[in-house]
Nucleic acid binder design. Structure first.
Lengths: 415, 415
DNA sequence: CAGTATTTTTTCGGTGCTCGAAAAAATAGA
DNA sequence: TCTATTTTTTCGAGCACCGAAAAAATACTG
């Protein structure tokens, strides 16, 4: 069960605390860190001095903003960009991208590729991922030794250990242990993450005021995905990862979903569903494989122009999302929502029906206080989340290790 | 944000760890505690010696079960029953009960009363609760000084700080800060809890093998309630407490629910809904205030006897519960379920439709592995959970205090 | 029945962490 | 140049934990 705290763990945890305080605050002074962590000045002084000597933190002389005060000026501490690097790999429909991110969180290199993920074989898919990572690692500008972690995000269901993709809409292949494959191939720890979860992680870093302890990120795309943060922690299912919001049941026995079941939220609100309704096809019509962003844009334009099947299709999407959110709010209480993805650009068409539906549910009592943000571009968000997740791992595990001594490339220079 | 670990916190946390290990294991030896907590023998020895001198733990000489081994026999440690006491108050429809529980978890006194909660005024309701507690506290057999906490469980919605009942189906009154009232009245810390959450807590203590990290307790009663444990912790909403599973939407715009909305799970699966359907009344018929257990029993008997509206009513209840669970499982992945309450005795009538519905949802892929337990009697469960919750508070706060010295009635006898 | 083996529990010395107070450092204002 | 002010470091003290060894308590053995 829950385990006691050993004396040697103390320093480890407090080191990690200091690192994460610096990552959050940007350039905090020692005094500020002492205040946010609740530790004494002497402790912070000792820990940060260690971390600087180990090359993890660096003093960034000028903290000009507060320089007009009397007294000894504060010295800002920042993350040393050279301390490590991580790779963020994002695999989405027909698209593969990788970015190299330094320890301070800046992108130092990137590469993107179009693929035909739906028709590729298992080996081709794996091969492309391995190849793009290899190309980045072979970049002469990059110190391969410093790459501490690879994080790979994918649309679909991943296992709870962050090792494998179990199922994904972007490929007919199932059960690919990407994390293990990359780890074996390059000898670098790797993790496999769900794209919507990474969106949520990124939102939390981008706007900690709005997205703090409890919020919801919903991906409006060909399918419907969700990243959920509860009590400040990413909520992943107990077995697989990622709440399958899109496959909550909106209408029992209703419209045919891409997953083969009936009445899922996605079967009304996914791009293919909106397209199907706008074309006035039967609810039983087989979902199409892909609808281009341009085509969706055209649908939205027509819906804005005149009242017709297009507008009705968006209305029904809003209704499904609203009832789904209402049921979700019945379980977790209302929380801020971010609508992400191309269809978030059409949120004006979705919102009225969505709010009307929520008002008819248990969440309705607070329907006024529920606020929606939109972010049409999911890719940067996913990559950002991936990077932050990988960096947090590095913070916790590599630079604040247990008793068995530091691993990795950074060593103490002074005893 | 998250705060560093101070040196003085270490002992506090590890003391709490030892206490909770003893509460979980019953009569563990020091060696066993060392094993489960991961702390060294010397540390456990020191901490338990302190706790014994403070009168919190006691050595319970005979650990006969393992006595056939060679070597120095293990000495079992147990909680000292006299160390403290808590009161568990359960307020349900037309019924008020209180139990006095000693520190070891044994009921030492109890009292029950029938009330007419639906028609009582606010002051009468509060008055009855205060009076029943007062009578227990005035019991000459009880050392009032040792009562460390009062926990009150109620059906309905409580605030997230465990201070007040916001709304409850058992009374038209709203917003009663029971915890504050009891605290002021008796000067004893009090907490206000949701009944279904307490059911979940109790299940976890009763059968930690089945109900460990993730499980669901569903109350099938006049209304439908849920207690949810995720990652080993009680999940309560972000604002109010208790996931309102019964008010997830089963059919948008469907049957009229007691809450005034339409299509909630409860509007198909609550006792009043089953009764309404068995009587073949309209879905729009106003929910009746109460259906007696005997009447429900008669319905169930008829349903088992012959295929008719009664059987159909249970089928529809199962369907609603199944789709609701299916949507829940879409979010959190399947987990063990306990069906609690009088209608759990009719689960044989509910289960087939329930499983069929789940099979049509995202949870369906694991539908074989989902298992249901039934427990027709919710009251003992609620009281048990209440008691354990209060005792855990005592464990954590009273007996493992921060630096500001011990509060409460127990003091160090030896320095 | 005394001695040996075995297991649990306590004792003891050592290490390392954090804390508070005081000193040192670094700047603005007088 | 001196003083006030604020940040950071230094230093001694206290404390919690650990590992190893000793002590305690029992079962087995001849």
């Amino acid at each position: 069960m829950s385990v006691g705290i050993r004396h040697d763990d103390l320093r480890r945890r407090n080191r990690a605390m200091v690192i994460s305080a610096v990552r959050r605050a940007g350039q905090p002074s020692r005094t500020e860190i002492a205040a946010t962590t609740g530790l004494s000045h002497s402790t912070i002084s000792a820990i940060s001095s260690d971390l600087i000597q180990e090359g993890i933190l660096a003093e960034s002389k000028a903290s000009e903003t507060v320089s007009m005060k009397r007294g000894r000026p504060q010295v800002g501490l920042s993350l040393n960009p050279q301390a490590a690097a991580v790779l963020a790999v994002v695999l989405s429909l027909n698209f593969l991208s990788v970015a190299v991110i330094d320890y301070a969180g800046q992108v130092v290199a990137e590469e993107q590729r179009r693929l035909d993920t739906l028709t590729m074989s298992r080996d081709e898919l794996i091969g492309e991922c391995v190849a793009i990572v290899r190309r980045r690692l072979e970049d002469p500008d990059l110190d391969v030794q410093s790459v501490a972690r690879i994080a790979l995000a994918i649309q679909g269901i991943t296992d709870s250990h962050a090792r494998a993709m179990l199922w994904s809409p972007i490929t007919p292949q199932t059960n690919i242990a990407f994390a293990d494959i990359l780890e074996r191939e390059f000898g670098i720890p790797a993790i496999m993450e769900n794209d919507c979860n990474m969106m949520a992680v990124a939102l939390r870093w981008r706007d900690p005021n709005r997205y703090r302890d409890d919020f919801i990120a919903i991906l409006l795309s060909h399918g419907i995905g969700m990243g959920l943060v509860l009590k400040g922690e990413l909520f992943t299912g107990t077995h697989s990862s990622g709440g399958e919001f899109g496959h909550m049941i909106h209408r029992p026995g209703g419209a045919l979903c891409r997953c083969g079941r009936r009445g899922c939220v996605e079967a009304y609100a996914g791009n293919y569903a909106i397209w199907r309704n706008a074309r006035q096809l039967s609810e039983n019509a087989e979902p199409v494989a892909d609808v281009s962003d341009a085509e969706m844009q055209a649908l939205a334009d027509r819906a804005r122009e005149m009242d017709g099947p297009e507008r009705e299709a968006y209305r029904r999407a809003g209704e499904a999302l609203g009832f789904g959110l209402g049921s979700l709010f019945a379980l977790i209480d209302p929380a801020p929502v971010a609508m992400v993805g191309a269809s978030a650009a059409a949120f004006d068409l979705i919102e009225p029906a969505l709010r009307e539906a929520i008002a008819q549910t248990a969440g309705g009592q607070h329907s006024g206080s529920i606020s929606f943000d939109t972010e049409p571009n999911e890719l940067p968000l996913i990559r950002e989340g991936c990077a932050m997740r990988a960096l947090s791992f590095v913070d916790q595990e590599i630079f604040a290790p247990g008793a068995q001594g530091k691993s990795g490339t950074i060593r103490k220079h002074v005893a």
